[in-house]
């Protein structure tokens, strides 16, 4: 595990950020790579499946979205291992990328994160800027930060257990809209 990093008091950033833009409809031939979503070998001992659908405000699947997963290893360690684009057998990098299929499903094979949640970034045609969220393990549902959210909102961040792993749907909009995260809020206070 690399040395611990803490949160420091915010300094005023010197430079304004380059703005984001939508990933558009044509990322499919560029960003997803073969095996990119198989962070652990599918079906191997200790491997779990994290999958779900990306849905729009009408509840329709989003077939041109992309989800990126970044997570700690089973013991909670942050992995700093190259190779996510060209994987070697048995090596765990903690990062993967999955495009949604025609029915809006994304799917990863990975390990259970010791840190309690899967960290996700979501991209799609029609989505102007990436969104961040967390898929908490069902066993982490009593997380103190989660309990600061209204119960129905907190529920959108908890994955559901299944035989081979977890299901986590991402609602971009609507009654069940997923909680998305603002990591920069403190910078503006």
């Amino acid at each position: 595990m690399p040395e611990a990093r803490g949160i420091r008091p915010v300094e005023t950033p010197a430079l304004d950020p380059t703005p984001g833009q939508t990933v558009g409809p044509f990322f499919g031939f560029a960003l997803p790579v073969p095996g990119g979503a198989e962070i652990a070998p599918a079906g191997a001992a200790g491997a779990v499946r994290l999958h779900g659908r990306v849905l729009d405000g009408a509840g329709s699947p989003v077939p041109d979205a992309m989800v990126e997963l970044w997570q700690s290893d089973t013991d909670g360690a942050v992995v700093q291992q190259a190779g996510s684009l060209r994987r070697s057998a048995g090596e765990f990098t903690g990062w993967g990328r999955a495009a949604t299929d025609a029915d809006g499903w994304y799917e990863f094979w990975t390990r259970v994160p010791g840190g309690g949640f899967f960290s996700l970034a979501v991209f799609a045609r029609g989505l102007m800027h990436r969104l961040f969220t967390r898929a908490y393990l069902p066993t982490a549902a009593s997380d103190p930060w989660l309990s600061t959210l209204p119960q129905d909102r907190a529920g959108t961040l908890v994955a559901r257990a299944q035989d081979d792993g977890f299901v986590f749907d991402i609602h971009l909009q609507g009654d069940q809209e997923t909680v998305f995260l603002d990591f920069s809020a403190r910078d503006r206070r």
Partner: peptide, 23 residues
Amino acid sequence: LRHPTKDPVPVDPEGVELWSPVF
């Protein structure tokens, strides 16, 4: 139909969020 209508929730990054994947 693809933009959230609720404000994103402010949160301090923790754990892996304070790190980036390595290439």
